[in-house]
Amino acid sequence: MRPSLAVLSGRSAWKGPFFVAFPNLKEALTNNVAIKTQARNCTILPNFVGIRFQVHNGKDYLPVLVTQDMVGHKLGEFAHTKKRFIYRTTKNK
């Protein structure tokens, strides 16, 4: 077992976490504007805390407010892609 950072969970430590550099990060934090993104595989960094994101789930953009506990997870984990099946008798309802 090699020592590696727990947050990387299998990724080489020398690479660091994968993330997307959002150009409007500062603006989003000051003006409280949501960042609309499709980068679901972007790791949530400590400087993302408090920013609102609109994360694509394949169909539309779901709001995600980043909190301190989410650091180290991916953005996509918070925009669910599957809808629970509900049986409807008629299509037009």
Binding site: T67, E77, F78
Partner: peptide
């Protein structure tokens, strides 16, 4: 409980 609290897919 941590996964559930932050509302991630794993917790769900």
């Amino acid at each position: 409980a941590h996964q559930r609290m932050i509302g991630s897919y794993v917790g769900k």
